[in-house]
Each structure stands twice: as C-alpha cells, then as structure tokens.
C-alpha cells in the first residue's frame, strides 16, 4: 500500500473519516506519521477553542480579582485557587465522573461525557484560571501614568478600560500568555488518558502514539514522531503570538519593545 493511499485512509481517522480499522501488524513509518498527525486534529481543536473562549473569561476573572468589591473579588480568587491549586489530571477525572452522574439525572448531560465537550469545558475553565492570574499580574503593573493620562483626557469607565487599561494589560501579559498557550497545547494530550473514552478509537496524537508503542513494544519511533509534531506546532504558536506581540507594542520606540522571552513550560 502506497503512502498516499495510507494518508487517504487514515489522514482523518481521528474524526471518523476513512478506514475504520486501525492497522494491526507490520506498521510502516508512513502509517505512524499519518495516524499521529491525524490525532493532532484533536489537540488543535482543544487547544484553539479553549484558548479563545478562555481568553475572554480570563479577562473578566482578572478584573474581578483586581476589583475592590468583595462580592466580585472573592469568587474570582476562589475560582483561580481551585483550578491552579489542583492537578489538571484530577480535574479531568472528577469532571468526567461528575458528568457521568449528571447524565443519570437528565439526558441533557449526555454530550458532556464525551471528550469533545466535557474535556473542552475542563480545559476552558483551567486555562481561564491560569490566564486570569497572568492578566491579574499585568493589571497590577500597568504604569500609573497611563491611567492618570486617561483621566486627564476625561476618559473613565468603559472607554478608559477598553482603550487604555485593557490594551496595556495585554501588552504586559503577552510573553507570559504565550507560555500559557504552549502549555495548554501540551496539556491537551492528557484528555484521553483521564477517563474520557476515545470512542471508536478516535483519539488525539498521544493516544495513537501510545497505541503504536503498546503494539510494537518499541517507543523509539512513535514518541519521537509525536515530539516532532509538537515542536512544529509550538514553533507556530510562538510565531503567531510573536506577530500579535509586535502589533501590541507597535506604538513603542524600538528599543523599549520588550523582546519575547520564552520561559519553561511545565506540567500543571
């Protein structure tokens, strides 16, 4: 079977298009590349959606945490502590079994036990908490002069927030937020190892990589392939976020533009 044929059969296997049965014996390099790459679709799906939705919720949470009103501050603080203080792995497990119980109560919760929705919600809440902490830190370090200048121009309330505070917050938070994005992207690999079932063997990249490693008892091929994909996507994230960073900093004189410094990505 030619490699092109394999790509046609398995390229979209992870979303259920193409050959139904996974290869069982005589794995070729092409099959491993194709299937693991096809699994990346799920990693991208989880990563991108959680990042975009989490971004807005995180902004709200950060403002809540910086608020002087206890009614806003306390819930935001507790939410952030809850999701940053416990392992994502345990959060996945807990959420899965919670949804499983809710499913018994009402059929409305049926889709929540599937990874595409249930895991996405957990990732969304988790990344919101981490991002909110980053944004909160940035919010506190907005230069006093910027806000005073806005006051002097007669801005207040929503216009001041939208035109001064929020863009400055984003600009200051951006390098750390880039790390968070990479980090979240890596965390998506946990989904299919934490209770959420891979229905009809539609899994993510790591799911297929470990499938090959189990079948061939040879970890030295599938995992480096997985690493290859992840390094490429990490570089893409760094590139895209770097462009946005340039845009956020475009009003600053050249030498004051903060260079993107990438710090370690750790487990959560």
């Amino acid at each position: 079977m030619s490699c092109w044929q394999t790509i046609q059969d398995y390229g979209l296997r992870s979303i259920g298009i193409g050959e139904r049965l996974l290869p069982k014996t005589d794995f070729t390099l092409c099959e491993q590349f194709t299937l693991i790459g096809s699994g990346m679709i799920w990693n991208i799906y989880f990563g991108v959606l959680a990042l975009i939705t989490g971004f807005f919720f995180a902004s709200a949470l950060a403002i809540g945490k910086a608020s002087s009103n206890r009614l806003y501050r306390k819930p935001a603080e507790w939410f952030i502590f809850l999701f940053r203080g416990s392992p994502l792995f345990i959060q996945f497990f807990f959420a899965y079994f919670l949804f499983l119980n809710l499913k018994g109560v009402h059929p409305f919760f049926d889709p929540f036990t599937a990874a595409w929705l249930g895991a996405l919600i957990v990732l969304f809440l988790n990344t919101s908490a981490y991002t909110a902490e980053i944004f909160y830190g940035a919010l506190l370090s907005i230069p006093k002069g910027d806000v005073e200048a806005a006051d002097a121009y007669g801005m207040s309330g929503w216009p001041r927030f939208r035109r001064i505070v929020w863009p400055t917050m984003l600009r200051l938070a951006w390098p750390a937020y880039t790390n968070e994005a990479i980090f979240l992207f890596h965390a998506t690999t946990l989904v299919y190892f934490s209770g959420f079932p891979a229905w009809r063997q539609k899994g993510d990249a790591l799911y297929y990589a470990s499938y090959f490693a189990d079948k061939t008892f040879n970890p030295f091929i599938p995992y480096p392939i997985l690493a290859f994909y992840f390094i490429i996507f990490t570089l893409i994230i760094v590139g895209v976020f770097g462009l946005i960073n340039n845009r956020l900093n475009r009003h600053l004189p050249g030498e004051r533009r903060s260079k993107m410094r990438l710090r370690p990505n750790l487990i959560r």
């Binding site: 890596h186 490693a213 008892f217 690493a227 990505n265 750790l266």
Partner: peptide, 21 residues
C-alpha cells in the same frame, strides 16, 4: 530544550518503556 518542548506526559510514557528496555 528537548524536555521543555514536548508534552511531559509523552515523556512519562516514553521513558518508562525506554528505560526498562
């Protein structure tokens, strides 16, 4: 660089088999 660029869970799954072998 390598350990930082790749999801750690992949390393966990990889090393256990690789070290054993």
């Amino acid at each position: 660089a390598i350990v930082r660029g790749v999801p750690d869970i992949a390393f966990f799954l990889f090393f256990v088999i690789a070290l054993d072998q």
